[in-house]
C-alpha cells in the first residue's frame, strides 16, 4: 500500500525524542532487513524491525504507536550484533517503550500476577519484566 509522505505526516518530535533517549541515529539505516531476518520474535510482531526503522525515518508516529514490536522485543540484541550499519536497534526499541512508560503508563500490572505464577517465577523474571514493562 502506497503511503503519502509530506511535512504533515512526519512527526519531528518522535524522531527527536527517540534520538535523545536512544542516543542512536536511525537515519543511518539503509533498510537491508538483516534485523528483521534475525529477530526471534519476527512472527509475533506486527511490524518488523526494518520497517520500524523506516517509520522512524519518516516520523510516522501513529504507525509506530500502533506497532507491538517494541512491546514484544525481548532485548536479545541479535539485530544489534548483526546490523551492518552499527545501529543499536535494541536501544531504539527501548526508547519507543520509554515514550509510553515515561508517561507513568504500565504495560503489565505487577500486583495482578497470580499467586501460582509468583510461586514459580524466578526473581530475575520479575526484576527484568518490571524494568521493561512498568513505568
Amino acid at each position: 500500500m502506497p503511503i503519502k509522505i509530506s511535512k504533515e505526516t512526519a512527526d519531528e518530535q518522535i524522531r527527536q525524542k527517540v534520538k535523545e533517549i536512544s542516543g542512536e541515529d536511525f537515519q543511518k539505516c539503509y533498510q537491508c532487513g538483516t534485523c528483521s531476518g534475525s529477530c526471534p520474535m519476527a512472527d509475533q510482531i506486527t511490524v518488523l524491525p526494518r520497517r520500524v526503522m523506516a517509520l522512524l525515518q519518516l516520523g510516522r508516529k501513529e504507525a509506530l504507536e500502533e506497532a507491538n514490536t517494541h512491546w514484544v522485543c525481548a532485548s536479545c540484541h541479535m539485530c544489534v550484533v548483526r546490523c551492518p550499519r552499527g545501529i543499536d536497534i535494541a536501544k531504539v526499541m527501548e526508547s519507543l517503550r520509554q515514550l509510553t512508560l515515561r508517561k507513568n503508563e504500565d504495560i503489565i500490572n505487577p500486583s495482578e500476577i497470580s499467586k501460582e505464577d509468583t510461586a514459580k517465577l524466578p526473581q530475575v523474571a520479575m526484576v527484568s519484566g518490571f524494568r521493561k514493562l512498568t513505568s
Partner: peptide, 16 residues
C-alpha cells in the same frame, strides 16, 4: 544463541 523470550514471559507469555 537465540533468545528464549526472556522477560516477555511476563509481557507476552505466549510469544515467549
Amino acid at each position: 544463541i537465540e533468545c528464549c523470550g526472556s522477560y516477555q514471559v511476563l509481557g507476552n507469555p505466549e510469544a515467549a
